[in-house]
Each structure stands twice: as C-alpha cells, then as structure tokens.
Design a protein around this nucleic acid. Structure first.
Length: 236
DNA sequence: CGCCATGATTCGCC
DNA sequence: GGCGAATCATGGCG
C-alpha cells in the first residue's frame, strides 16, 4: 500500500465500461425503462420478427438477472470499501495516541483504499459487460437467426420491385402494404429493397431472367385481372 | 464441406 | 432518417 501514490486521471477504459453498462440498461436508474431502452436501441434498424416475443422476454429476464448480480456485487464492494475505510481510520486513530498522524496521511490512505476497490469494481464491470455482450449476440443479433422469407413473400416483393424497376423505392404506405402481404416487418421490407437494389444494380445480367419472369407475370395479371383457383400465380 | 444466395448490420454520406 | 456500399453470418444446394 505504500506505492501507487501518483494521481491517475479517470481511466478511459472504465469510462467506456460505465457508458456501455448504462446504455445496456444494466447500470441505469431503474429496471423497466433501462432494459426496454437497451432493447429498442439494439433493434432500432432491424425490426424483430413478430414471433420473437418469447425470446425477447427471455432476453429481458436474463438481462435483469445480470443486472441484479451486478448491483448486489457492486453494493457488496461499496460496503466492504466503507467498512475497510472505517477500520483503517480506527487504526490510525489508535496510532495517533503513540505517534503524530497528519490529516494528509489519513487522506492518502483513504485515497489508496478507494483506488484499490475501484479497480475491483472495474473488473466487475468488465465481466458484466462481457456477459451482456454474449447475451446480446445470442439473442439480439438477428443475423444468427436468419430465415429466408416464404416463397410467396419473395414473390410479392419481386413483383413490386420489377413493376417499379424505374423507381424501386416504395413509399411508407407501400412498404406497409407489402409488409402486411408478406407477414414481415416494414424494416424487413426496407432491408429487402435495399439489398435488392444494390444487388440488381451490381449485376443486372444475373437478374435478367427473373426480371423477364415477373414482367410477364404482371403483364398477364393486367390482361386477366382475375386468377383461377389452381394457377400458381398470385398477382393481386 | 464449399460455395453462393440472402437477410441483417454497419458505416459514411447527405 | 433513408440510402448505397461493404460486410457479416446463416441457409440451402450440390
């Protein structure tokens, strides 16, 4: 305890950890709001599939589990820190009967103790962050759970894309309609069109066959304007 | 298993 | 906030 005397600025690593725990709703003020905010932040761009509410609540319960552990541990450390501090103060008080103890020395001791305990807290924060990251990658990274859309959904999307090939940018209303028809979210519709536009542009030749197919389909749909029960086309 | 298709995410731009 | 581009990670087929 004699060394480590120099004043260190706030550890950027620690600040980073604090920010992250706050963002994840682990270190936030209260339970419900924090976790919900973290989830909504994590799903801001990619909509979650509608059937993921079960996994979603699973995620929330696991996150609050992590949160509880974090808080009890943190509280334990803080309590231990203050207990140890008063203990050392008592020792110093005893020593002051036999030798001079300057206020500066007391100050220094307290600072050293706090530094030690805060380094322990940093470890706690680090492992908590790690746990949250693992949880997130398991539950919220939709890339790990990608499922191809149904053939019918892809058909609906392709029909729109190729019949609006000159301007394949569906409006909000159109996206909503497509999402409803395909039983997917609007974010997924946006993702699909984003991917489709860039991939179509990159290699128009590869999509020529597909383009012709859907051009023909819409042409047929326009002339027939009705579909018989057994034809596989679904121009609606 | 290797390869490509595909849905989702990230980053930079406006 | 939406978009293009690059990238990630999985699905699916041979």
């Amino acid at each position: 305890m004699r060394n480590a005397q120099e004043e260190e600025p706030p550890d950027p690593q620690l600040v980073r950890l604090d920010n992250m725990l706050l963002a994840e709703g682990v270190a936030g003020p209260e339970k419900g709001g924090g976790a919900a905010a973290a989830v909504s932040a994590a799903t801001s761009s990619g909509g979650m599939s509608p059937d993921s509410s079960l996994e979603h609540s699973d995620y929330k319960s696991k996150l609050s589990q992590i949160r509880n552990i974090y808080h009890t541990e943190l509280e334990k450390y803080e309590q231990a820190c203050s207990e140890f501090t008063t203990h050392v103060m008592n020792l110093l008080r005893e020593q002051s009967r036999t030798r001079p103890v300057s206020p500066r020395e007391i100050e220094r001791m307290v600072a050293i103790i706090h530094r030690k305990f805060s380094s322990i807290q940093t470890q706690l924060k680090q492992s908590t962050c790690e746990a949250v990251m693992i949880l997130r990658s398991r539950f919220l990274d939709a890339r790990r759970k990608r499922r191809n859309f149904s053939k019918q959904a892809t058909e609906v999307l392709n029909e729109y894309f190729y019949s609006h090939l000159s301007n394949p940018y569906p409006s909000e209303e159109a996206k909503e309609e497509l999402a409803k028809q395909c039983s997917i979210t609007m974010s997924q519709v946006s993702n699909w069109f984003g991917n489709k536009r860039i991939r179509y542009k990159k290699n128009i030749g590869k999509f020529q066959e597909e383009a012709n197919l859907y051009a023909m389909k819409t042409a047929l749909g326009a002339t027939q304007s009705e579909e018989s029960p057994h034809t596989p086309n679904s121009t609606g």
